[in-house]
């Protein structure tokens, strides 16, 4: 920490900017969780694990094929979509509507399987990618923004926009919203709710897979990141408001910023103190979340 107050403000602003950029990727990750919960009231306890699977897939594409994660992202998202769709159709669907603790056990089991599969295949060491723009940066006024974060944030924003178009402009997207809005109504009009649920889980998984590919530009992957990301996604979604898409994005930005600022004010290893502190504050003052539609 600098003694010069001007320098300190600049450092802080720099951290906020970085936090916002990383926060977009967090937001995309949380969006996946939020969509799944909002539609079928299932809490995906394997969310961080799916994020890490996305990261490993992007790493494989880089390591074996030399593909930039930004290039392999559509394929990674598609793979996670298929995984999510099939997982919902085969394993999760029979648990819809059962007591929450049973769903929790099931998804925890999925999480344990995924993280240990990653451990068995890739080992406990970290893997990262080296892209040629790794050390590039953009100067915005006095701020210096890492190119990787800027690209990751822009792509995350783009995907969130595509998701919004999907939910507001396509028949399937509207049908998913309808099924979330009124389950009985969806059966009454003859929507194939089971297919829509599988589609939703697929879309949520694709979001988190894409977020994983983007995150690999920023951090290195190892299996034990998974539990941290699951927790982080929960914190973001609860802060933003469960089931609210804009809430998930806003929560992602907020948590991204709080982590970055904590890194400046305290130290990077204490960054979770701020996000969990924020969570406690939100739970005390506005338990429905910041942008929840109804209380």
């Amino acid at each position: 920490m600098s003694a010069d107050p001007g320098q300190f403000v600049l450092t802080l602003l720099q951290a906020v900017a970085m936090g916002l950029l990383t926060g977009m990727v967090y937001g995309l990750m949380a969006l996946g969780l939020s969509v799944i919960f909002g539609v079928m009231r299932v809490v995906n306890f394997a969310h961080g694990e799916m994020m890490v699977v996305g990261m490993y897939l992007a790493w494989l594409a880089f390591d074996r094929l030399g593909l930039d994660p930004l290039v392999s992202l559509p394929a990674v998202a598609a793979a996670l979509f298929v995984f999510g769709y099939v997982l919902q159709r085969t394993v999760i669907n029979p648990f819809i509507g059962l007591p929450e603790h049973m769903q929790f056990m099931l998804l925890l089991a999925v999480a344990i399987l995924l993280v240990n599969a990653c451990l068995a295949i890739f080992g406990p060491d970290t893997h990262g990618v080296q892209v040629d723009y790794m050390f590039d940066s953009f100067n915005v006024g006095p701020l210096v923004l890492d190119a990787v974060r800027v690209y990751a944030a822009l792509v995350a924003l783009l995907i969130a926009g595509l998701l919004w178009l999907f939910f507001t402009r396509t028949r399937s997207g509207k049908a998913i919203r309808a099924a979330a809005d009124n389950h009985v109504g969806a059966l009454v009009v003859g929507l194939d709710v089971k297919r829509l649920y599988a589609l939703t889980f697929g879309v949520g998984a694709a979001c988190v897979g894409a977020a994983g590919a983007l995150m690999l530009l920023i951090v290195q992957v190892h299996p034990f990141l998974a539990i941290d990301y699951t927790l982080l996604a929960f914190v973001i979604v609860i802060v933003g408001g469960l089931g609210s898409m804009s809430g998930a994005l806003a929560g992602g930005l907020l948590i991204g910023v709080s982590e970055a600022v904590a890194g400046v004010l305290l130290q990077p290893s204490l960054k979770s103190v701020f996000s969990f502190g924020l969570l406690i504050l939100v739970l005390l003052l506005r338990p429905q979340g910041l942008l929840a539609r109804r209380s």
């Binding site: 028949r171 509207k174 049908a175 919203r177 309808a178 809005d181 009124n182 009985v184 109504g185 969806a186 009454v188 009009v189 003859g190 929507l191 539609r293």
Partner: peptide, 17 residues
């Protein structure tokens, strides 16, 4: 059993399932 958060038009579109 309408879809309360969907517009009237979207509700009708869903009827054409």
């Amino acid at each position: 059993q309408v879809f309360p958060n969907l517009s009237v038009l979207e509700n009708l579109e869903m009827g054409a399932a």
